[in-house]
Design a protein around this nucleic acid. Structure first.
Lengths: 210, 210
DNA sequence: GTTTTTCTGTTGCAAAAGCAACAAAACGTT
DNA sequence: AACGTTTTGTTGCTTTTGCAACAGAAAAAC
């Protein structure tokens, strides 16, 4: 998908056109925001990287989404219906633009450039989320840990236009992202190496098949 | 979420305002459409019900989404990147409105009411998809078959505002929707009954806890 | 109303995944 | 460089899940 919405330019041009938009800084491990029902935050990650995580009653952590430079997040993209807490956690030092809508359909009363442009571009930002969600569903519906790993590796390989790529996660986090047990995943990773499906050097993976 | 877009009225008012919009009928088990890369179909299911399914290389079937009256689907809501075939299969006799965009951003040259209204409402239709996808991810990230079942039952219970509700799927299809083995799911279902978590009579389930 | 097909319910066995625990390595901080 | 902390890699054991197969019930087709 080609977004006509260039986040970087958008920030440069319009950040200061609305005084209700705040720029905040977060240190590693800080909670950037937690998703709250009936609120509509819209956030842009200017720098750093962060995860949207959910903790369930059994103490399992799931990484729902992973954000890097210029990614957008907030309740605007996530109708909160769950009982479980949804947090956005900074994985490194992060700079974030935050704006809270009363209602996503209302335009900003000041009719500022920021919101004019945003209203215009929101549909494609949302469409982009749909794409990444569909991909996520596709990964999660794979039946085995092996298929999930290979599915995810294929994705990264396609994105990088290369059989070699670097994992954006620690292996611990990767397990939480694929929603599998870490030790079981490590075992499978080892088998994939032994059976010459992949080569692995730290977080750098190379696909050896096809 | 409250959609201001009322599909039923939309169809009544605007169906005939654009001569490129087709109304088609499909019999049970027929393929309504298959998702094709770089195409942008927009479909409305007027009556009947249908599933969006994916068959993977191991022959596993996954039900990605389930559509009933007034649901919308098509590539417009699904950026096709997968190698696997994505089909929309009629589960009963279906009536469908179909329109194929050259590009989702171009407006219909005829500038008809159908597309005017659709362009206006597409963002919230897409936002609605995001919501259902987020819910789906939440279900699929549950670690056990039991948690998936209970998660799904809770959802149906909440939607119906009642501890008792009817499954919209056959049990065979439910397994494909939750992405688990049918016999394993049946076993778990039996345990849930025995441990008095649920009562089950055909496709009617009653939650007995809390 | 009979036949055919699909769906449900069940089981034994095999395979995969989860859990718990620990040591070694890597990373960050002072 | 030394410390504490997090991550990686591994393993033995248990539990869960998947697979294959089959019989009976229900639904659909003729």
């Amino acid at each position: 998908m080609n977004l006509s919405f260039n986040v970087e330019n958008f920030i440069k041009e319009f950040e200061n056109s609305c005084n209700k938009v705040q720029r905040k800084t977060f240190e590693k491990s800080e909670v950037i925001t937690s998703y709250i029902q009936k609120r509509n935050q819209f956030c842009i990650l200017i720098s750093g990287n962060a995860d949207l995580v959910r903790y369930d009653l059994n103490g399992n952590r799931t990484i729902i989404d992973h954000f890097t430079n210029n990614d957008v997040f907030g309740e605007v993209f996530y109708d909160v219906t769950t009982n479980n807490e949804l947090l956005v956690e900074a994985k490194s030092k992060c700079e974030v633009l935050i704006y809270s809508y009363q209602n996503i359909h209302y335009k900003c009363k000041q009719n500022c450039k920021f919101h004019q442009k945003l209203t215009e571009c929101l549909p494609e930002l949302i469409l982009d989320k749909v794409t990444s969600l569909n991909m996520r569903v596709e990964l999660l519906t794979k039946r085995s840990t092996r298929d999930k790993l290979l599915g995810y590796f294929n994705l990264l390989s396609t994105r990088n236009l290369s059989k070699t790529f670097k994992l954006p996660f620690s292996l611990t986090d990767l397990a939480d992202y694929l929603s599998v047990d870490r030790s079981a995943m490590m075992r499978e990773l080892k088998l994939l190496k032994e059976e010459n499906f992949i080569k692995k050097d730290g977080k750098t993976i190379t696909l050896l098949y096809k």
